[in-house]
Structure formats: structure tokens, C-alpha cells
Amino acid sequence: MGWFSKRKRTAPTPVKKDDIWVKCHACTAHVYREEWLSNLKVCPKCNFHDRISFQERLGLIIDDGSFHEFDKDLKAPDPLKFVDAKGRYADKTRQTTEKTGLNESVITGRGKIHGMRVVLAIMDFRFLGGSLGSGTGEKILSAARFALKHKMPYIVISASGGARMHEGILSLMQMAKTCAGIAQLHEAGLPYISVLTHPTTGGVSASFAMVGDVNIAEPKAMIGFAGRRVIEQTIKEELPDDFQTAEYLLEHGFIDHIVQRTEMKDCLYRILQYWSSK
């Protein structure tokens, strides 16, 4: 220990530029990290809503102390015993868990929004890009079942790069599995609200994220099915800047609202009042 601190004093690490500044993904402006953080990772220049952790999201949506997590210990399985150029998928998930404290790319549970009981799923991009694995699908479905059983509204907040290749076809099947859960809520007349945050693409956009009674997005979130580069290669032309943004989807009729992070809780509450007021 002493050796380390001594060494640190003799060779102090210079403060990196990255520690003070954050470059916005959307407008590429450099903004003060402090300012960006206190603004809940929203760019003060262009209003781009960057990714946040599930803990941060939970604090913004759910009443303090009201959250009870489901399937906390459910870990990502490795059904294919997948190995790629970088090694074993099982090692990758274990390391990700060590680094982030997350067992899967989604956290589910029940909680309250201004006193109203809801079931909630929050995806966290830090776990393998929020990819849709068997564990993700299992948790999203089992939360939907809880909502069904207890006649509660269900809210899913997505952030995902899409399917998880390491789980092969079973990752694809999670699209059908989660949609089956949503279909049951539809049939039972229970509300399902989808919140799409940056980014929501591929298999997640093509399943539960797109079939909400109401689809809400955060400003400038990237939302789409195929990757931008793949599309450009297919049509052999460059795409406009706003392609696959929340604003583009609003204009094309696929989402209902674009809502600021800070106003999301009130927005969800007001919408759900139309169901619970019956």
C-alpha cells in the first residue's frame, strides 16, 4: 500500500482532458463533465439524452424506497457454450458482472410512481450493450406475468443494441417470448407503456419496445431496426443526420411523445391515470 502511495506522489498522473470534458455523441460539443452530470447526462447544448444507469433511472421514476426487485440473482446463461475470437462468453458475462454489479441487461421489479403501484423493467446498457439474452427475456416476461397476476400496469424502459449473438437463436427467441408476455397484458386490458431511450435498436426495437399502448422516447435517442451502416451499404447513399432519431420516429408515426428525462415520471403518472381512473 505504502509503495503505491509513494509511487503516486513521485509520479502524479496528470488530469486527463476526459476527466473535465465530455464529448456529446449527438452534437460533438465538449461540455463540462460537472455540468453534464448535474444535468443528468443531458447535453446542455443540444438536449441529447445520453445513457444512464438503472440506479439513476430508478431514482428519476420510482418513489424513494418503494422499489422491490425481482429475479435479482438471475444470471445470464450460456446455452450454446459460446466461444469467439476473444474467448468464452461465460467469462465475458462474469467479468461484466464484476465490473458493473449487474447480472443481466435488465433490472425488473415493482414500485410506486407518485403512490401508484407499477411493475417496471429498466434496461442497462452497461451489461453487454443492453443486449437481449435469455436472462433478459426471462426477466421481462416474468415481470409481465407479475403485472398480469396483480393487475398492475407495466412499464419497460429500453436501452439496447439488440440481440445477443453469443446466445444465438435463443436470443432471437426472446423477441417472441417477451412479445407473448406483452400480448397477454393487451388481452387482459392492462396498460403497457414502452419508454425508448438511447439507443433502442435491432431485436429490442423489433419486439417489446415498439408495441406499447403508448410509446415514449427521450430526446435524440437513436431508435431503429437495421444498423445505419448496413442501410447505407444497401441503398448506396448517405442517410440524413436525423435518421433513426426519436424525432424522426415521431414524425413517421411510431412514437407518441418525446419527453425530457426529468419529466418522465410525471408523464407516466398522468397517462396511467387514464387507465386507473376507471
Binding site: 417472441a176 407473448a180 419486439s207 415498439m210 408495441v211 431496426f225 433513426q244
Partner: peptide
């Protein structure tokens, strides 16, 4: 994408389930 590839597939999965 403009006409909703994601939505079209998602809707089918949801409808086919039931």
C-alpha cells in the same frame, strides 16, 4: 425504416402469440 420495419415485426410477434 421510415415505414417502421421494427414496429411491423414487433406487431407480428405480439399478434402471432395469441
Amino acid at each position: 425504416e421510415a415505414r417502421g420495419q421494427a414496429e411491423a415485426i414487433a406487431k407480428n410477434l405480439t399478434e402471432m402469440a395469441v
